[in-house]
Design a binder for these strands. Sequence first.
DNA 1: ATCAATAATAGTAATTGTTACTGATATTAA
DNA 2: TTAATATCAGTAACAATTACTATTATTGAT
Lengths: 135, 135
Amino acid sequence: MTMLKYSRQRECIRDYVRNCHQHPTADNVYAGIKEEFPNISLGTVYRNLSLLVELGEITKISTGNGPDRFDCNTRPHSHFICTCCHCIQDIEMADMDYIARKASENFDGKILAYTTTFYGICKNCLDEKNLQKSS
Amino acid sequence: MTMLKYSRQRECIRDYVRNCHQHPTADNVYAGIKEEFPNISLGTVYRNLSLLVELGEITKISTGNGPDRFDCNTRPHSHFICTCCHCIQDIEMADMDYIARKASENFDGKILAYTTTFYGICKNCLDEKNLQKSS
DNA sequence: ATCAATAATAGTAATTGTTACTGATATTAA
DNA sequence: TTAATATCAGTAACAATTACTATTATTGAT
């Protein structure tokens, strides 16, 4: 491990993700901190986001299509991705570990982590289309 | 929808994925059928894999880093990704729907699908390192 | 405070995985 | 057999991300 030096850019990037609850992309972060650092490089944003993920200060969400998203919520939780507007929402579940325990039962490897991603239509899109959650 | 015409290339691609249980990448498929179709195009492989996914004949797995993988198993199941050798294994779980029901309880959108991906060390890697599943 | 060591930067080029385009070929229904 | 057109091979374009390089900023020791 190489020693870590302070950088104002990294500080700013971390704060931005901390205060943004829309699960921003690297590009969103880049655009968002352009005001404070007009000539920051996109590479710097990517590098620091990766670093912050390594440090466990933020997490990365792979959506399956489109760019990765970042999340200030480091507690274990799931994500919901709306197939309509592509928004991402956190989903908290009571007994998440149940899944890992259950999966371990018939698996001979060592399970260290897992993520669950839900897909569907978010509240906003349901409302816009006058649909019900249960229809 | 445009009408679907037969193609030997698509047949071959489907058969390859059907008989390959290593969750191949598009590149793997490309390399694997080069023998039968020496001058097949990588674009053709991508196009047909996407088409087969649309038709529900195979499924696509997004790994989060690295290329997408494809799976001949179309029944609902989870995946385990080894962080050591990067292999992917299927994990069958008895009551998977429990998760979706549980998640629905405190969520106001409409959940239509979900995937769970487990991360850890596979049996082979555990053995090579003389490690135990429970240590 | 000054300095040397080096981590981090801005800017840019390269890489990776995937999709789009184009003219030629293969499949299909009449 | 023919006409219509889906698919093809080949290649170019694309989006997201990473790597490179010369310069700047931070740090710990003088």
